[in-house]
Amino acid sequence: MVRFLRPLVRGATYTRLVYLWVPMLVVSVWVLVDDTRMWVPAALLVPAGLVPAVRTGEGVQARWLLTPGQEDTGFSVAPAKTWRDRLRTVVWLQARLLLGLLTAGACVWLPILAVELARLSAGYRAYGIPVLRDAAPHWAFALLAPLPVLALYGAVVGLGALATAGARALLGPSAAERLTALEERTEQLLERNRIARELHDSIGHALTVAVVQAGAARAANSPEFTERALTAIEETGRAALEDLERVLGVLRETRTPVSSRPTLADADRLLESARVSGAEIDAEVTGPLETLPGPVSREGYRILQESLTNVLRHAGAVPTRVRVAVAEGALTLEVRNPLPDTRAQSARGSGLRGIRERAALLGGRARTGPDGGDWRVRVELPPG
């Protein structure tokens, strides 16, 4: 019983009722003008729904009234960009008008019916409902009086739920909007992972150095050693603070639009930067880079950037081969350089892990490691 009555204490039940009553304002105004052509309000909603901004207004109303307090509402608040979105808006306006008429009818006539049944059970004649005017008063009508109240409860709750489901279907994001949202989400995850890696490396290293140096200074019990340990802790802590300030500065900045971030079409500047650093870059690009989906091209750029950075950091200015192949929207990227002497050191760090994470996030794969005397990074990314 408590579960059955729970919708009565939910604010969404009443905000949905308000949402369904809003179209009746249009109908009420039209009734004052002409009560013989009731089809006119529905006809006027057709050109109104074709206006792109109307979709935004409907989405905002749905968010505030159909799903109050929810974060993931499933409604789009962007203007209609395609004719399909405009037609979906028109269909929703018609459906909302129909649901509003049903709600208004239930809210007006069901309470009147309950009152008339109560009057008949009390020995009075009924006047509000035509079919009951000839009914003779009888106490048995008291058994029927609660039924319209229950029907009103079901109509208010049921029509509100139906309006929410219909709005999600017709005012939900289009395929293009979902793709944009997915792309932005991918960019956010990648950025968060990158920042997490940088914080882990810099702050983790600083704390490790501080703990080790402090413990060694205590064990040595030497003023000279303690002085050197404090100096090392100070320098390491200052460097970590600079790294932290840099990362926090990135977080404070307004996020760069997805479309303005570098792609593989801008890879020439990466290669030129590596050449200026002394590396001999042999680059070969096959296939049309411009056909790559946005996320694939952007992550391919970052992977190439990280691969060249690792070459310069661990192997130095050595001959490096870069191969980029594009076929049917898929990307294959390979970077080879002579294997450095410190092989074990080259396999550590967050750079290679970051490459693998970027590839996995887009459903691809990355292989890194020694290969025939070279250090090879090979990444395959499927079409977005």
Rank of each mutant, 00 (worst) to 15 (best):
L312P: 03
E184Y: 10
L110H: 06
P47L: 14
S307E: 01
E280N: 01
G128M: 01
G158C: 09
A214N: 08
R197S: 12
L132R: 14
G329H: 11
V296Q: 02
E234F: 07
L190D: 14
A181C: 10
W39K: 12
R84S: 10
I195L: 14
E183W: 10
E184H: 13
R238D: 13
D268K: 14
G105M: 01
V157M: 06
A48N: 11
L150Y: 05
R63G: 13
A359P: 06
Y124H: 02
A80S: 14
Q345M: 05
E245D: 11
R37H: 00
T180Q: 09
R218K: 12
T320G: 06
D341I: 04
R6K: 00
Q70W: 00
S76A: 09
Q61W: 14
I129F: 04
L143P: 12
A232I: 15
G74P: 06
T342P: 15
D201G: 00
L361Q: 07
T332V: 11
G329M: 08
L44T: 14
L150T: 10
A95I: 11
T368L: 00
D268L: 09
P383C: 00
S260E: 15
R10E: 15
V247D: 02
W21C: 15
T56R: 12
E306F: 14
L162R: 05
L44V: 13
L182D: 10
N221R: 15
D374Q: 02
V156F: 01
E334H: 08
A169R: 07
R84C: 09
R192P: 04
A216G: 08
Y14R: 15
S174H: 09
H200I: 10
N221A: 15
D268Q: 13
I355P: 01
R3M: 10
Q213C: 15
Q94D: 02
A145I: 05
R261T: 06
P68N: 08
L45Y: 01
R168D: 09
A165S: 04
L5T: 13
L171N: 08
R96G: 07
P79T: 03
V335A: 08
T320V: 12
R252S: 03
L162V: 13
T309M: 11
W30L: 06
R119M: 07
G364V: 02
T236I: 14
R37G: 12
D243E: 00
R323K: 12
R298A: 02
T231R: 06
P130G: 00
I112G: 01
R367N: 10
E58R: 12
S259T: 12
F4W: 12
M1N: 11
L20C: 13
A165Y: 01
V212C: 11
E234G: 10
T180L: 06
A327Q: 10
Q61E: 03
R197P: 03
C107R: 08
G154F: 13
W139P: 07
V311G: 00
L182E: 07
Q345K: 04
H138R: 12
E334C: 01
L159H: 03
L199H: 13
N193D: 15
T291K: 07
S260A: 13
G363R: 03
L66G: 04
F4E: 09
L117F: 04
G278H: 11
R261F: 07
V156G: 04
L199Q: 03
S174A: 05
C107V: 07
E71W: 00
Q188E: 09
T256G: 09
R321T: 02
A315E: 04
A135E: 15
V51S: 08
V22H: 14
E116H: 00
V296E: 05
E71M: 06
P262I: 02
